[in-house]
Design a protein around this nucleic acid. Structure first.
Lengths: 242, 242
DNA sequence: ACAAAAGTGTTCTGGATACACCCATGT
DNA sequence: ACATGGGTGTATCCAGAACACTTTTGT
């Protein structure tokens, strides 16, 4: 089955259509191992091409919404969640990435904090996958997910997106868990703590987290700029640190 | 004069159209001061909106070309040059960035080596401007140029784009001049030389540059990966170093 | 001889890493 | 008492910055 180039002339005529897609990342414990890992929601294709394969959530741009609004909307529509972080990833537009009608996709990536309701939303056509085990996706979506992962890791190491995964207060060990889950390797607790404390974006509170079976760790608060402001476009270009 | 929202309903109906624009950078000596500086070509608007203002070169996407091909094409059409480096910058698509028919622009940025012929191409409607003195541009193009400049500086510091400004062999002082021109500050020659030599992307040749009124400097050759491969999409994702 | 840039050597500092060690809590 | 992570101290290493100094050419 390769009807890919069945109607080339038709494809040559029409102007390419525009779509917005979003790679949505969330952290949650693996139900088997219990360790914190990266997950993302995918939707099942209910029409050709790539019928029945899993794909990134997405859809057309509505006339009066911005690109970013469209991404936030299709995030909300598939997960019922609000993005903690949302940034443009890349525009994909090769003439052969989709059979027949050409589609240019502007892709965003997002970080969310899943709650029970959102995870329950799993049905026939929406499901969460471990980011490292998504299987074969429709279109060029495997490539896109890979690239989004690379960007996430980059922003984590050089930016402040980690806090988008966390609540308003957190322990330094929780921050480290986020880094370890996303980067996929262990970090030295002692040095990691010092790096965070040196980074100025963080402030100790007077509270401690009780309930562990060990010394209660101090809670901290994030005081730096909204991580969203580190992405372009921004009202204040100085915010583009890295 | 603000006919911006004159026909909102009309704008709400039509699907947004897609355009490709390109920020093209070249280094050449300032005709006044003689120091190496950054320049870019702009084209004059010959229709409304923003009639007579300067704008980035751009145009529609043709049915069978890739986004990058379209950028290379409108680069060639306005400067008659071939890009040494070409990378996607960002997709701009706010509903209000252009009056009346909504336009989503996918913007690329490029580095070129201008030759005499290309610079002669200045006419009524195409001219080169110092990157720090472009004046007021059409649409949101001032923002776009600022962002492209930021990206260029970033890629220069963390990547290997500098060599796209240079010929096949060059002295270390020439590399330093590129950095100084783009970053806008002076660098220590001694330390800069050592950093380059440590960076492995560079190889000494047996030749020396004669003709200066001082000790002839050794010529070097760039041996690292094509700087283009450091941008996405790439055939080999490992190439995404930073 | 002298100017000018090429190229080398040396010192200092700050950040990252590795890892030993002490602290405070629940059981 | 002891296990478990929280939290501190410290030695080492390496990259970058500052800057003095030597080398090789043209004039």
């Amino acid at each position: 089955m390769s009807p890919r180039y069945a109607n080339v002339s038709e494809r040559e005529q029409e102007p390419p259509s525009l779509a917005i897609s979003t790679v949505i990342f969330a952290l949650r414990p693996d139900p088997d191992t219990g360790t914190l890992t990266l997950w993302l929601p995918l939707v099942r294709r209910i029409r050709q091409p790539y019928l029945d394969l899993w794909a990134l959530p997405g859809g057309p741009l509505r006339p009066s919404e911005s690109l970013q609004d469209a991404a936030a909307r299709n995030l909300r529509e598939t997960t019922a969640l609000t993005p903690r972080y949302l940034e443009q990833l890349y525009a994909f537009g090769g003439p052969d990435r989709s059979p027949s009608p050409r589609v240019v996709s502007i892709v965003y990536w997002a970080l969310v904090q899943p709650d029970e309701a959102a995870l329950a939303r799993q049905d026939e056509n929406v499901a969460w996958f471990r980011a490292d085990k998504v299987g074969t996706l429709a279109f060029d979506h495997n490539q896109i997910v890979e690239y989004a992962l690379w960007r996430l890791r980059n922003k984590l190491e050089y930016g402040t997106v980690a806090y988008a995964f966390l609540g308003s207060t957190f322990t330094l060990a929780q921050v480290r868990e986020v880094y370890e889950a996303v980067l996929g390797r262990e970090l030295d607790p002692a040095n990691f703590r010092r790096q965070l404390q040196a980074s100025v974006h963080i402030e100790p509170t007077e509270h401690y987290l009780q309930g562990g079976r060990h010394r209660p760790p101090r809670l901290y608060r994030y005081t730096g700029p909204d991580p969203r402001d580190e992405s372009f476009p921004s009202q204040r270009p100085e915010a583009m640190e890295h």
